[in-house]
């Protein structure tokens, strides 16, 4: 799944570690989310979106997720 996390981090001048601490996960989880190796849970997606003041759809791209 594609995300806008790297772009949003740059905008807010945040390191992966700082974002990780803010949303209560490890830095490795943020790295995996950014490169698309790991898909965030609903709770984590909500925390990240809320941290940037956006909705989940504005941070995570669901276009390549199959329905059903």
């Amino acid at each position: 799944m594609k995300t806008r996390i790297p772009e949003l981090r740059k905008q807010h001048k945040l390191s992966q570690q700082e974002l990780a601490e803010a949303v209560g996960v490890t830095r490795q989880t943020i790295t995996s989310l950014e490169v698309g190796k790991y898909t965030a849970s609903l709770v984590l997606a909500y925390k990240i979106a809320r941290y940037f003041g956006l909705t989940i759809e504005e941070v995570f791209d669901f276009s390549d997720v199959e329905e059903g």
């Binding site: 209560g24 996960v25 490890t26 490795q28 989880t29 995996s32 790991y38 965030a40 849970s41 709770v43 984590l44």
Partner: peptide
């Protein structure tokens, strides 16, 4: 705590 509760871990 962070390592243990991390959802990816």
């Amino acid at each position: 705590r962070l390592e243990e509760l991390d959802e990816r871990n």
